[in-house]
Amino acid sequence: MNLVSMKRHQSILNKLEEQKYVEVAELCKELNVSAVTIRKDLKFLEEKGLLHRTHGGASFENPYINDRSVNEKEKIRVDEKSNIALEAASRITENDSILIASGTTVQALARAIDVTEKLTVITASLNVALELIRFKHVDVLQLCGYVRHSSSSVVGNQAASILENVSCSKLYLGVDGIDLEYGLSTTHLEEAQLNRKMIEAAERTIVLADSSKFGKKSFGRICSLDDIDEIITDSGINKALIPRLEERGVVVTIVAK
């Protein structure tokens, strides 16, 4: 390997250190080399265990997500999730009817809700329902179906059939991965299918995701970025992703740490 290649590899790693995720097209422009050269560089660095290649780019972290229990995930990035939840809760209005999916960030949303007027909530999450029963003026419709032990949420045709007969102003959606090409994803295929039904039943879809979810993908694809309206995230997001998301019509709201 020559000195030019070594310098290029170091430049790639430096950019990854700064942004956590890089794209092939961006590296081509910055380093003034072809896409073929960059892909060879990324393959070499991946073989050395220095990064993980993704579709169209690379990241330090493995982009493929395995299923973990909600009890484990709720202990991760607690402050970021709480701040995202507070911002999301500010969107809820009097006499609103909303959908809340599953996951630890939307569970934090349920804890952050503080309403004095009537609110109707439809949710797949048992934990969300338990958080909201403290309010006498909040009507909670718990979707029925098979309960996933890892997420404490329901999936299945029974839950999906209920959603065919409702319309809500907003869906608050938690995800396991956000990828510019692959879209939104979760670790469970049936959960992804139920989330798609929720999107169809909502006028507006708001994704609650901390910055670690970007550049990740999982087994169950929920939808493309074109199907959502807003992402609420924290300041750790790679700033280069923001204009790319906005080009797709997604409003990006960043909360302070």
Rank of each mutant, 00 (worst) to 15 (best):
S224V: 05
V121H: 04
G177M: 08
H9I: 04
Q107R: 15
N71D: 14
T120G: 01
V70A: 12
D41K: 08
L13D: 02
E200G: 02
G49Q: 09
N127W: 05
M6K: 12
V155L: 12
K43H: 14
N95K: 14
L184A: 01
H149W: 09
I133E: 00
T93D: 08
N127F: 15
V252M: 03
F44P: 10
Q142C: 13
H52N: 08
S161Q: 06
S235Y: 00
R244W: 05
N71C: 06
S212G: 06
R39C: 01
E23Q: 14
N165C: 06
G56W: 09
I92N: 03
I199H: 01
A160Q: 06
L13S: 02
H149F: 01
E94S: 10
I231C: 04
V155A: 11
E203N: 13
E46I: 12
E30K: 09
V155I: 14
E131W: 04
N62M: 07
V138K: 09
A58W: 14
I84V: 14
K216F: 08
L86A: 13
I206H: 00
I92W: 06
L109K: 05
S161I: 09
V106Y: 08
K20H: 10
S150G: 03
A89C: 15
L45T: 04
L99N: 03
I231L: 01
E74V: 13
N62D: 15
D229T: 07
F219I: 12
S161E: 14
D179K: 08
P243T: 03
S169Q: 09
E47H: 09
V33C: 15
F214Q: 05
